Computed example of a mutant assay.
Amino acid sequence: MIPLVPPPPAVLPAGPLIPTALPPLTTALPRLPGLHPARPQLWLVATEAHQDTVTRYAPLVLDAGELARAEEFRRSGDRATYLCAHVGLRRLLGAHLGVAPRTVSVARAPCPCCGEPHGRPVLADGHPHFSLSHCEGLSLVAVASTPVGVDIERVPAAHTVAEASEVLHPAEAAELAVLAPAHRPAAFARVWTRKEAYLKGLGIGLGADPSAEYVGAGPVPSAPPGWLLADVTVPDGHRAAVALRR
């Protein structure tokens, strides 16, 4: 698990993230420094680098629900990524709280739409805020002092972009349409990760209409009122974004 380089200063204020990588799972993780109000801490988890250790340690770190969910994945790679993501998240939250990862208790906040307990994942006292996203082989974790959302996705195939463009805001669809066909998949992944990070930060997720809010498909994101929005640098073939409430 490694800390990511800061998002563009024009979107999130400049300032260092945690400067060192997490030690191996067999090493105690020291308590992490306090959170900057305007900058989340971002961490990238590479499944390939951690899956062997995580497979051994997951039963000692994760709860029964997480272990059961992991067993539902048919593909071993998806299962490994899920385990790495959730073990990594618990280690980070435990380090912020000063407790063992296995004792971290995660619940669900009330949904902003209906009030039922299926909103964003939260800790018992609500702090720190956090968000987790994973795709095959990579996971992205954010920890922040205000509500935060992250998303990471593989750049899709061209036919997927053509089929899914109708879920975008009309202005975003128009921005994609003027691009050369070869550039549309990466631009679609860029706008989609921005959109999903924002919706996860709200605690709504894809329960809301993704076409209703404009976040932009161009090089610079357009943050909804009251939010900061930034693209995150991740390995080639992927796109990622983080949304932070002001």
Results as ranks from 00 to 15, higher is better:
residue 23 P to M: 12
residue 243 A to G: 09
residue 244 L to N: 02
residue 197 A to N: 08
residue 174 A to W: 05
residue 200 K to R: 13
residue 156 P to D: 13
residue 59 P to F: 07
residue 235 P to V: 09
residue 123 L to F: 11
residue 74 R to K: 13
residue 76 S to N: 03
residue 78 D to S: 13
residue 235 P to S: 10
residue 11 V to N: 07
residue 51 Q to L: 10
residue 133 S to V: 08
residue 5 V to S: 14
residue 64 A to E: 15
residue 73 F to N: 04
residue 2 I to T: 14
residue 13 P to M: 08
residue 173 A to W: 02
residue 126 G to V: 08
residue 49 A to M: 09
residue 161 V to G: 07
residue 244 L to E: 02
residue 235 P to D: 05
residue 201 G to P: 10
residue 35 L to R: 01
residue 97 L to I: 10
residue 56 R to Y: 07
residue 193 T to L: 11
residue 22 L to F: 04
residue 132 L to D: 03
residue 41 Q to R: 05
residue 32 L to A: 13
residue 150 V to T: 02
residue 57 Y to D: 14
residue 175 E to F: 02
residue 29 L to V: 13
residue 86 H to E: 04
residue 60 L to K: 11
residue 195 K to H: 11
residue 7 P to M: 07
residue 140 L to G: 03
residue 242 V to N: 01
residue 232 V to H: 07
residue 82 Y to G: 06
residue 133 S to F: 06
residue 123 L to H: 11
residue 181 P to G: 12
residue 226 G to Q: 05
residue 118 H to V: 03
residue 241 A to N: 04
residue 45 V to L: 15
residue 135 C to D: 13
residue 81 T to K: 03
residue 188 F to N: 07
residue 200 K to W: 12
residue 12 L to M: 13
residue 189 A to Q: 06
residue 180 A to K: 08
residue 116 E to Q: 15
residue 195 K to P: 09
residue 1 M to Y: 00
residue 196 E to S: 10
residue 98 G to V: 00
residue 12 L to T: 02
residue 33 P to E: 07
residue 16 P to T: 02
residue 13 P to W: 08
residue 100 A to I: 03
residue 240 A to K: 08
residue 88 G to P: 00
residue 201 G to K: 05
residue 205 G to C: 12
residue 228 L to M: 15
residue 37 P to K: 04
residue 17 L to Y: 04
residue 120 R to D: 02
residue 158 A to N: 01
residue 158 A to E: 15
residue 14 A to R: 12
residue 67 L to C: 13
residue 22 L to V: 01
residue 201 G to D: 04
residue 72 E to H: 15
residue 138 L to C: 04
residue 48 E to I: 01
residue 119 G to F: 06
residue 28 A to H: 13
residue 159 H to G: 00
residue 191 V to N: 02
residue 115 G to P: 11
residue 238 H to K: 04
residue 223 A to R: 07
residue 187 A to E: 02
residue 203 G to A: 12
residue 197 A to R: 05
residue 10 A to P: 00
residue 160 T to L: 15
residue 163 E to R: 15
residue 225 P to A: 15
residue 208 A to E: 14
residue 27 T to L: 10
residue 177 A to W: 03
residue 108 R to F: 00
residue 109 A to Q: 13
residue 182 A to Y: 03
residue 74 R to D: 05
residue 13 P to Y: 06
residue 124 A to H: 11
residue 26 T to I: 05
residue 222 S to Y: 11
residue 213 E to H: 12
residue 34 G to W: 00
residue 135 C to E: 11
residue 5 V to A: 15
residue 69 R to T: 11
residue 234 V to K: 01
residue 195 K to D: 08
residue 198 Y to H: 15
residue 126 G to E: 11
residue 93 L to T: 03
residue 165 S to P: 00
residue 83 L to N: 06
residue 134 H to F: 09
residue 87 V to C: 13
residue 136 E to K: 12
residue 35 L to T: 02
residue 215 V to A: 05
residue 212 A to R: 15
residue 30 P to I: 11
residue 20 T to R: 14
residue 33 P to W: 08
